[in-house]
Amino acid sequence: MLDFDKLDKLIHEKGRLSIMTLLASRAEWPFQELKAQLNMSDGNLITHLRTLHQAGYVSLTKEKLERPQTRYALTAKGRSAFQEYLQLLEQIIQTGKGA
């Protein structure tokens, strides 16, 4: 059993972790594609994105094409936090296996 206190709580929440994972897989994601991939409601997704944006992990770009579209991307801070989160998970696994 190991303590997860060092894990970034902001990322560790399952909805936000899904969002961070998708954002890490491509340069940017339109809101509708994120929603479709995650099967989340508009409200739920917006709330999580707002939390991540306020933490400086996610940037957004608003475009006015045929209809308004918002695209989301990881910031350098967000990418670094996600990488640290993954590294910590791996360390926990290695430590657990070594014990």
Binding site: M1, L2, D3, F4, L17, S18, T21, L22, A24, S25, R26, Q37, L86, L89, E90, I92, I93, G96, K97
Partner: peptide, 23 residues
Amino acid sequence: MVTVSDAESTLKTIRSLMERATI
């Protein structure tokens, strides 16, 4: 407090999600 298997499961899900998102 969580177990090592939780961490493994989380990493596995992250990997799977990233792979499927790029298909």
